[in-house]
Write a protein that binds this DNA or RNA. Structure first.
Length: 432
RNA sequence: GGAGGAGUGGCCGAGUGGUUUAAGGCGGCGGUCUUGAAAACCGUUGAGCCGCGAGGCUCCGGGGGUUCGAAUCCCUCCUCCUCCGCCA
């Protein structure tokens, strides 16, 4: 959410600031008129309330002194009616203002390139060279079943499409990857690990920006205010909802492994094969709470922290700076990390690292007390960032496809072996 | 799930209808004193909003109600605690 102050000052600039982003221009115009009316009504209502408070106190005083206070009582009562009328109008205006504010996307950072879709994204870095195969590399949806470690059909029986059973080495590797990522981020990158609830309420989803606009992407527990978390970003960012943090503890860095649940409405027909787009997947998430002046540097660091996982696993990837039109609703700036998948001969997203500036902090009321020499500092909204470090299922896919051999086996990357009992190679059933 | 109890400023805690614009304490900050520190003493110290300003308004877990007037009374929801039941 953008601040009212910012909207007021930049109302005529908003079309330029939000160019390329999805929003309703008519809502902006209405916002301006409503805001002015709201402030006028407020001044009037507060004046009346002030008078009523005084008159009301007079009633008490006179009564105590045994005097007649009927005139004051009547005046207070009629003021009360006037106030109630003004307040009803105010509440209606407030509701409308909030509706339009909630629906406005974040203003992109100035370093974000123009563009309407992924064609406007900019590759800022390419790391590693895709391996030259002496044979036709298979896609993981062929490799996995052949190795007997990915079972799509039985998962469809148990639940439905876009679910998978991992068995044997796939389950082991998945577990090892989580462990490797969590160890790396906690021991080498300074993150504090959390195991948050996987179920979140609507207030939390509003705080990070999934609600109210994107409920169709979520699984809701029937008859409740609870949803399966679509990403650990939601529970972890909302850790500090409605809090005022001390400046000294910033930057705060958390990492958390959670399963993630997404309804994938509107993705019908896309990535229907394999592990790429599932209703349930594991992810290690990185979340930071930082001072506003630190957020650009911290986005670079967080993105590096995610890249380090790919480098440890010897996976070729590239870093892409998303253009204005391809960013998420809440983001001010986003880097996607894309891993090379030989089976598709393409780079595919494996991490998305974003700075939200104060957009989420405002929605979730997360502030910090700026320390000032000789006394009290001001409370300010802090900046939040997060990124996948990494999406575990897609990392498993990348390992299977990049490290496959001509005999159908898959070599386990060196860095992962200590986490899976020294397993060096995954072999097809029956192979020696 | 059943029965009780409780939610007040960073923390503890007083307040059961009208100078409470929330007492007091702790903690924090500033100062006096001191070579320095501690102690003691003095002062200061919640959040948000409206207003050019003076100033004003709102907030005592959330929401609703009663009243001229609500932290205080009523309804409802949430959370926590105790006991019972159930359970990994």
């Amino acid at each position: 959410m953008l601040s009212r102050d910012f909207l007021r000052k930049n109302l005529d600039q908003m079309p330029r600031l939000l160019r390329g982003r999805a929003y309703d221009p008519g809502a902006l115009e209405r916002w301006g008129a409503l805001d002015a009316e709201r402030r006028a009504l407020m001044t009037s209502a507060e004046g009346k309330r002030s008078e009523r408070n005084a008159v009301s106190a007079e009633v008490g005083k006179k009564r105590k002194a045994g005097q007649d206070a009927d005139a004051e009582q009547e005046r207070s009562r009629s003021l009360g009616e006037e106030i109630a009328a003004l307040e009803a109008r105010l509440a209606a205006i407030d509701g409308e203002l909030e509706e339009s504010e909630k629906a406005l996307p974040n203003v992109p950072h100035e370093s974000v390139p123009d563009g309407d879709d992924e064609k406007g994204n900019v590759v800022v870095k390419v790391q590693g060279t895709p391996r030259a195969f002496a044979f036709e590399p298979k896609a993981h949806w062929d490799l996995g079943p052949a190795l007997g470690i990915l079972d799509f059909e039985r998962a469809a029986k148990i639940t439905g499409s876009r679910f998978t059973v991992l068995s044997g080495a796939a389950s082991l590797l998945n577990r090892a990857l989580i462990q490797l990522m969590m160890d790396l981020h906690t021991r080498e990158h300074g993150y504090t690990e959390l195991l948050p609830p996987f179920v979140v309420n609507s207030a939390s989803l509003f705080g990070t920006g999934q609600l109210p606009k994107f409920e169709q992407d979520l699984f809701r527990l029937a008859g409740t205010d609870w949803f399966l978390a679509p990403t650990a970003e939601v529970p972890v960012t909302n850790m500090h909802r409605d809090e005022i943090l001390a400046e000294e503890i910033l930057p705060l860095s958390y990492c958390a492994y959670t399963p993630c649940f997404r309804a994938e409405a509107g993705a019908a027909g896309r990535d229907t094969r394999g592990l790429i787009r599932q209703h349930q997947f594991d992810k290690v998430e990185l979340v930071k709470f930082v001072r506003p002046e630190d957020s650009p540097g911290q986005l670079e660091r967080l993105t590096r922290d995610a890249e380090t996982v790919l480098e440890r696993l010897e996976l070729p990837y590239r870093r892409v700076l998303l253009c204005r039109g391809d960013m998420g609703f809440s983001s001010a700036k986003t880097y996607d990390l894309e891993v090379w998948l030989p089976g598709q001969a393409a780079y595919r997203e494996i991490s998305s690292c974003s700075s939200f500036e104060a957009f989420q902090a405002r929605r979730a009321a997360i502030r910090f007390r700026r320390s000032a020499p000789g006394g009290k500092g001001k409370n300010e909204f802090l900046h939040t960032l997060n990124g996948s470090g990494l999406a575990v299922g897609r990392t498993l896919v990348a390992i299977l496809e990049n490290f496959q051999e001509s005999d159908g086996s898959v070599t386990v990357p060196e860095a992962l072996r200590p986490y899976c009992g020294g397993l060096a190679s995954i072999r097809p059933p029956g192979a020696s």
